[in-house]
């Protein structure tokens, strides 16, 4: 694929993505506004609610007294200028809030997806190569447990075991109390700490990542394991794998080069979808492990009917989804030269 062709493809897909985002604003806006609840009730105290002047002032301040259609276009117009509105909770611009919380979630989700893809693919290949043997049966149970254990239960259990009983891992947060976050470059503490050469800070950040990251990734491990096993089995009986064996290549080379390469195509699809799933899983995991990411932010916004914040989170998640899908499509053409991006 030529660089010019890739550029054209990216431009086109990003254009479509922009249209998609506008559509999503509409859906999100309609959904949040048909909820039969009143933001004023959720945000104002008992006494303030009794005062019609205060309620009116509140509604006016957040534009809630205008017709819904007008509200939507005002929102869209502001969005176009990078203005997500003011959060009714934090009283700060939603954009500022997101800038603070999004990197935390990205770090957590990336950690979870990398761990679960590495583990899931490794175990999946093992299950396929040892098909029908005891290892395969054990791994079948593992993947079944992975996909069927509810995240909230795993989260609480792991919390109880590794923090409360064993004391191996911290209970939550991104860093131990008293530690200063590294100077921001990417917003991912582990990466920034490494970039600044702050080794102990990196270790501390990593320790805080392990528990929520693994809990978040367990479901994905199960999914990736099953998909990997299936796609490896599909590939392994191909003529070209027999041809590779007939060439006398070591089995490791046959598996990693000749079998894994085609299998990665479908694994990339699953991992892309799984990453999206992880983002919604963060709501629960971040709540339990007090991880200051958009999951918690979304939760707090939702229970308080903080409409600008809810809309902001929806936007961010939508954009991440679109970018992941784009990345998976580009990855396809890298993995398979027969796929042309159009």
């Amino acid at each position: 694929m030529s660089p010019a062709g890739l550029g054209r493809f990216l431009a086109r897909r990003l254009g479509i993505g922009a249209v998609l985002v506008v559509g999503i604003t509409l859906v999100a806006f309609v959904l949040t506004h048909i909820v039969p609840a009143d933001p004023a009730t959720a945000n104002l105290g008992q006494r303030a609610l009794g005062d019609p002047a205060i309620v009116k002032a509140f509604n006016h301040e957040y534009g809630l007294d205008k017709p819904v259609v007008d509200q939507y276009f005002i929102y869209l117009w502001k969005l176009l200028h990078g203005n997500f509105g003011i959060s009714e909770q934090s009283h700060r611009p939603v954009a500022t809030d997101l800038g603070q919380y999004v990197p935390a979630t990205i770090e957590l989700a990336l950690f979870a997806i990398v761990i679960s893809v590495v583990v899931g693919v490794g175990l999946g290949v093992l299950a396929a190569v040892r098909r029908g043997r005891p290892v395969d049966s054990v791994l079948r149970v593992v993947s079944l447990l992975g996909v069927s254990m509810p995240t909230f239960w795993v989260a609480l259990f792991a919390f109880y075991l590794f923090f409360y009983k064993l004391g191996w891992l911290p209970s939550g947060g991104r860093l131990s109390p008293g530690l200063q976050p590294p100077k921001e470059i990417t917003g991912l503490y582990t990466v920034d700490a490494l970039l600044h050469g702050q080794w102990s800070l990196f270790v501390n950040a990593l320790q805080h990542l392990i528990l929520p990251g693994i809990v978040l990734g367990i479901f994905t491990v199960g999914t990736v394991l099953r998909f990997t096993r299936a796609s490896v089995l599909e590939v392994i009986n191909n003529d070209y794998v027999r041809a590779a064996r007939a060439k006398g290549l070591p089995e490791w080379t046959v598996i990693t080069r000749h079998v894994m390469r085609p299998a990665l195509l479908s694994i990339a699809t699953v991992a892309g979808i799984a990453f999206g799933g992880l983002l919604s899983g963060t709501v629960l995991v971040e709540k339990i492990y007090s991880w200051p990411g958009i999951g918690q932010y979304a939760y707090n916004s939702a229970v308080n009917l903080d409409l600008p914040a809810i809309m902001g989170v929806s936007m961010v998640v939508a954009v991440i989804y679109i970018l992941i899908n784009l990345a998976v499509d580009v990855l396809y053409s890298v993995l398979d030269p027969r796929i042309e991006l159009r």
């Binding site: 191909n238 003529d239 070209y240 027999r242 041809a243 590779a244 064996r245 007939a246 060439k247 006398g248 290549l249 070591p250 080069r257 000749h258 390469r261 085609p262 993995l335 398979d336 030269p337 027969r338």
Partner: peptide, 28 residues
């Protein structure tokens, strides 16, 4: 066996469209 395969006895399969790996360059 691996020493024999490919080095002393080579296999040419029936269908070259499936026997050649679709994702690897000819050089590899």
């Amino acid at each position: 066996l691996r020493e024999v395969r490919g080095k002393q006895v080579a296999l040419v399969s029936q269908d070259p469209s499936t026997a050649l790996h679709p994702l690897l360059r000819v050089e590899v």
